[in-house]
Simulated scan of single mutants.
Amino acid sequence: MNGSTTPLLTLRGLSRSIGARRLFEVGELVFPRATAIVLTGQNGAGKTTLLRMVAGLEPAPGATVHWTGENAAARSAPLDPLPRELRERIAYLHQHPYLFRTSVRENIAYGLHARGLPQQEITRRVDEALAWAGVAHLQDTAPERLSGGEVQRVALARAKVLEPELMLLDEPTSSLDGQAREQVIALVRELAAEGRTVVMICHDRDLINLPGVVRWKLGDGILDTHHR
């Protein structure tokens, strides 16, 4: 699952404190290309906060982000606010995804409409995403009629359809069991195989033990990116 040795992103100076307590401090965090990563650690260690900072959903004062822009130019900027060039390259999936009160198809198409893509392109991409997630038969269904596993698959399709390079998933299988869990694990495996970088907050042994997965562990304020 590993790709080019040129990092997708490098973040520096990530830290978060709660009152006088330092939750974590990460001097440098490198996101490799085309890699599946599981982020583990005790509850309260700051895993969700860390990924939300990377996605631009939490303040990240003092942190910087470094990446390769067009024409292989080295770029850098403050992480907060997330640079416009990176917004379309990063997708964040909440542990309990929120779906808009419309159809499954319109939920998946939402981000593409927001980007102003032509309708023909939107239709093509949404059709492909519906088929990929195995929810084409639910495309006209209202979200409140979906099972937990179906909601998770629709949310994955809604993120994938935007074609991000970095996908950040918060406990994608935590509320699932049986076939629903197996279906989501299969989709996560495919995302990594496509060449995306996928970072998952995870306690699911089957996800952690997927072939080629890199393990990161956050604990005692330190992020170990070489955890075994």
Rank of each mutant, 00 (worst) to 15 (best):
A129D: 07
R153K: 13
L223D: 07
G219L: 07
T49M: 12
V213N: 09
G178W: 10
V214N: 09
G69D: 03
Y98A: 14
H203R: 08
A77Y: 08
A63P: 01
T123M: 07
D80R: 07
G46V: 02
T49E: 09
L223M: 13
A91H: 06
R105G: 07
A74E: 13
G212F: 14
A109M: 14
A74P: 09
E190P: 05
L23M: 15
L187Y: 02
N71A: 07
I201D: 02
Q120N: 09
Q139F: 06
L168W: 09
D127V: 00
D206R: 15
A91W: 05
E85S: 15
L166Y: 07
L29E: 01
R145G: 09
W216S: 06
G56H: 10
L218P: 13
G19H: 08
Y98R: 14
T64F: 11
L210E: 01
Q119P: 05
W216M: 09
A72K: 11
E144L: 08
T68S: 09
P59W: 13
A114P: 04
A131V: 02
P78W: 08
I122A: 04
S4E: 03
A109K: 10
L23V: 14
R153Q: 10
R75Q: 15
G27N: 08
A63D: 01
Q95I: 00
S4T: 00
S147T: 03
A36M: 12
G13R: 12
L93I: 03
L86Q: 08
T68H: 06
T102L: 10
E106M: 12
I222C: 13
F24S: 01
E128F: 04
L130Q: 06
S15N: 05
L169Y: 10
S17E: 03
T68R: 14
P61I: 06
E58A: 14
G3K: 04
P59R: 12
G178H: 10
N209G: 10
E163I: 02
S4V: 00
G19F: 07
Q95E: 05
V213T: 14
S4A: 06
L207G: 03
P172M: 00
R84N: 08
R205E: 14
T48F: 13
L93D: 02
R115F: 07
T141C: 13
R33C: 12
E25G: 12
A55Q: 11
H66P: 08
E171P: 13
A74K: 11
V214T: 13
D204E: 13
D206M: 11
H137G: 12
E150Q: 15
A109E: 11
S15C: 08
L156C: 04
L51Q: 01
L14S: 09
E28R: 13
L93S: 05
E190M: 06
E144H: 15
P59F: 12
R101E: 14
A36D: 02
